[in-house]
Design a protein around this nucleic acid. Structure first.
Lengths: 142, 142
DNA sequence: TTTACTGCAAATCTTTTGCATCAAC
DNA sequence: GTTGATGCAAAAGATTTGCAGTAAA
């Protein structure tokens, strides 16, 4: 859990208080290999600490985003999901049939980024881009 | 307005009724060069026909989507926008500073699509992909 | 005449906010 | 003891839904 401790000291360092709620939100995000929604984090935290309010989850996520500890990805359909920032930049192949998310290394899209920059003078923010479609498994089912 | 008429006959053909509300929603989408939100369509329709309800707009958009007459693009941040299907596939460079949307031809991303297919067995649905970042003008301002 | 479509109001769902209380420091 | 953080309730914004009346066919 070294990342977890790092994040906690980062909070203290910046003058923020270390509350059980914040520790549990961090834990929920960092221990989870997948991308989680505010709702899911709330459910996980509430399992141990039943009266945490979902507004606290949102406020904590806002803070952690500001500190650069977690990253937000908009997977479309109004769903926003979170994951630890230290996992690095990557993209998502989101299967619209089964909902599975395949991670895609950042390097895969760097040629695209370069091209948009040169041809369109557009500085693309490709952190955590979501690409929708159908995964191999679901294609076979048909 | 040939597209408009096409769409109307498409509706009749499928056994749906031709109501003034439906005609006006179609008109609002097809006459607008940009991508519009349900809210904007409602405002435009309400200008002529004040008591149309926004729920009718949503129901109509749902129907037109089902019939393949309009396409929906999720531009992130919970904003969903619509445009006529016949305008063809293209992508969007969305500037997060000024909100401007630059259209990008489909061909630009076809190498990416091919690669995802071959390397990841993933059939990417790249219709109307939105890529966020900062446009040339806004970069100069800094 | 028939029944799909609409307007209205209310319900959902997700996220945000005001405020009094509480707890980390 | 201070002041930032939390819980609660209510608000806000976008979309959906139930239902009874209305109009397209």
């Amino acid at each position: 859990m070294e990342h977890h401790d790092d994040s906690l000291s980062r909070l203290r360092e910046k003058g923020y208080r270390l509350t059980p709620q914040r520790m549990m939100v961090l834990e929920a995000i960092e221990d989870n290999p997948n991308h989680v929604s505010a709702e899911e984090i709330h459910a996980q935290v509430a399992a141990k600490y039943p009266n945490v309010n979902i507004s606290t989850i949102y406020r904590t996520l806002e803070l952690l985003k500001k500190l650069g500890l977690v990253t937000e990805t908009d997977l479309g359909g109004g769903r926003v999901r979170y994951h630890p920032a230290e996992k690095g930049h990557h993209h998502h192949l989101v299967c619209q049939q089964c909902g599975n998310v395949i991670d895609l290394d950042e390097s895969v899209l760097s040629p695209l980024k370069k091209m948009l920059n040169e041809e369109y003078k557009f500085a693309a923010d490709l952190r955590h881009l979501a690409i929708f479609g159908t995964c191999g498994k679901c294609r076979q089912k048909k």
